[in-house]
Design a protein around this nucleic acid. Sequence first.
RNA 1: GGGGGAAUACUCAAGCGGCCAACGAGGCCAGACUGUAAAUCUGGCGGCCACGCCUUCGCAGGUUCGAAUCCUGCUUCCCCCA
Length: 406
Amino acid sequence: MPETPTLHPETQTHLAAFQRGAVDLIDEVELSTLISAALHAGRPLRVKFGMDPSSPDLHLGHAIPLMTLRDLQALGHCIVLIVGDATAMVGDPSGRNKLRPVLTREQVEANLVTYTDQAARVLDMSKTEVRRNSEWFDGMGFEDLLQLTTRMTVSQMLERDLFRRRMEQSEPIGINEFLYPLMQGWDSVEVDCDVELGGTDQLFNLLVGRRLQEQKGQRAQCVRTHTLIDGLDGRKMSKSYGNAVGLMDSARDMTFGVMRLDDTLMGIWFAHLTRVPAEEVARLLAGHPREAKARLAFEVTAFFHSAEDAEAAAGAFDREVRDKALPEDLPEHSWAGDWGQSLALPNLIAKLGLAPSTSEARRLIKQGAVRLDGEVASDPTSSLAEPDSAVLLQVGKKRFARILPR
RNA sequence: GGGGGAAUACUCAAGCGGCCAACGAGGCCAGACUGUAAAUCUGGCGGCCACGCCUUCGCAGGUUCGAAUCCUGCUUCCCCCA
């Protein structure tokens, strides 16, 4: 980013908060003017951020913009969180090549609660303005809707690469999906937005806001996009890929999760999810990757939990994974009455939930993944007799159970 | 309104009427190796009272000794023309 030496230092500080981690910043000059004007007038900027009410489980990918919003909040700006309850009934086409399922109002409300609970781990919700866009869309009549649609043409819509791609691949595009960018843009008009934040996949939608505001005679909002963070394995982070670390995860899960991160992604994670100074990050990355990652895991975990919890989790990781010791809180199961004198090993494993089916359990046994008191049990036809003392059953590296006598 | 296509396991995607629990890829699981990963190598991925049995290829029927493969109807989607 080119420094602009003529800026007032305070303006510079505020601008830096927007710049940090930004991919697109439209337009930087506009924004710095806006900032200094706001500072001068002693008014906060209205920074809009739309939540996606269709996926209530937040993960670290979602934390990236929230961290920025947090910084802005600390600088005194006003965060306007838009709950797209009206848009949710349209279905956001972003990032999906398929039509999205449409949500009901009830689902949206339920998701909103979960969402804000989670966002509160990063943001000060008491200082956050939460608006539902049904506030203005519910009252809109058919004529107003038509008016809205006249503001853009089909070819303008098709500029969006996602739509174009879907056209080319003969995949369906619902007419309602064209409404989505318009609605999102209209939100900006309604809340008199100064700056809108969104993922890089949102750029098109964000720019529609500029267009609509100008058409309505408002000052066009500035737009700032952030990286969509990759998941642990480099693919887009998503719960459905199982490569995500959730914001509500326990300190332990968070630490263990981050430690699974691909080495090459550590730099990005440091930059976006921690506020460790850049020089220090560089130093860490130059050192042993394991140390760097341990630090990353600590920073992230400590932020969402506490330094103590993070340390404890790090300790557990070292013991259990590095030193291959047993976890401290092994699930314990007593020998059940209806298991008889002895039970076939595959069935036992399935009953304890260590494998989804006896068939799967058999495979695991054949592959040498199962240990009884540390001894590999590789015969799927073997069975375990009711024990007189605790027996340790291990399936793979992560699944354990202690079987106790009745 | 007319015409032409498509529906297969988590995803993508093969599949001559028998040799199909169904090629392949991704993904996932396990083992080895490691710095926790990644990469690499190996094996596996419907279920069960398990050398056998049962249920799968959009849904419902039918033809056949035998169907994911043929026929009929239905449902959903896509494309083209109007």
